[in-house]
């Protein structure tokens, strides 16, 4: 598992070797500000918490995470470096996990850079900082789930555009599965247990509680199993590509 660290370091450095990292972080910060203050009515609510900030994260990730994950494998395939990487004495698991962790830490950094918001609420009032910390952790876990889906989408195609769209669509499905509008449409004619299953697969269902600061073991397990499942699927996709 030493290889994970090597791959992780290289991959992480490559984000910052190109403008991608800076553009991504800039847009992430601007948009999270816009969402929080304009759409989330941060001031008008007169409450010292970051709920308006966190509740928009699933939507923010919906189009920002695919932008990070689309290059994970597509770029390697396009430039041919995948041939180099896969013929080095590294296991597939090491490469997949190393790449994923690099992307995950990178989004973690973008998330951490929203700290001025945290300072702002602490200046304006007395928020529950435990809740905020739990929400940050939950948001980062959710980003991991999105990224793992993106990793799989990227492994499927040589084209980054296709990887982006594919990841976006799958992530959207996983968000919508918990959207009240969608669930109501099912309520009338589908057994309740099935509706619950659909809802329990959704990012939104699990993140709603997280954004209120309740980080339960169930939600943590959900996000981790999402990550493991999609990284495993990435491995299967890569294996199939190797055979053909």
């Amino acid at each position: 598992m030493l290889g994970v660290n090597t791959v992780l370091k290289r991959e992480f450095a490559s984000y910052f070797a190109t403008p991608i990292a800076y553009v991504f972080i800039f847009i992430f910060l601007v948009l999270s500000g816009v969402f929080t203050f304009y759409l989330g009515n941060f001031y008008e609510r007169q409450q010292a918490d970051l709920t308006p900030f966190f509740s928009f994260h699933p939507w923010l990730y919906l189009f920002l995470v695919p932008a990070v994950s689309m290059r994970l494998w597509s770029e390697e395939r396009k430039s041919g470096t995948i041939e180099l990487l896969m013929t080095l004495p590294l296991t597939k698991l090491e490469v997949i996990v190393g790449k994923f962790l690099a992307a995950w830490f990178f989004t973690g950094i973008a998330l951490l850079l929203t700290f001025p918001l945290w300072i702002t609420v602490n200046y304006l009032g007395e928020p529950d900082n435990g809740v905020i910390l739990a929400s940050y952790l939950g948001s980062w876990l959710m980003a991991g789930g999105f990224l793992a889906i993106g990793s799989c989408a990227s492994a499927l195609s040589k084209s980054q555009v296709i990887a982006f769209i594919l990841c976006g669509v799958v992530c959207l499905l996983f968000i919508l599965a918990g959207f009240p509008l969608v669930l109501n449409a099912f309520n009338d004619w589908v057994p309740a247990i099935l509706v619950d299953t659909i809802a329990s697969l959704s990012f939104l269902t699990h993140f709603t509680s997280v954004s209120k600061g309740v980080l339960s073991l169930r939600d943590i397990l959900y996000f981790f199993s999402m990550i493991v499942f999609w990284l495993f699927t990435t491995a299967v996709v890569l294996e199939l590509k190797q055979a053909n």
């Binding site: 290889g3 090597t6 370091k9 290289r10 450095a13 490559s14 070797a17 190109t18 430039s79 041919g80 470096t81 995948i82 041939e83 180099l84 013929t87 080095l88 004495p89 590294l90």
Partner: peptide, 22 residues
């Protein structure tokens, strides 16, 4: 490999360092 693929954004030093570490 054919066409000499390499991580274009890296320098030869960091690229070779990565390979040597692996």
């Amino acid at each position: 490999p054919e066409g000499t693929p390499a991580y274009e954004e890296m320098t030869p030093r960091s690229f070779l360092d990565f390979i040597a570490e692996v």
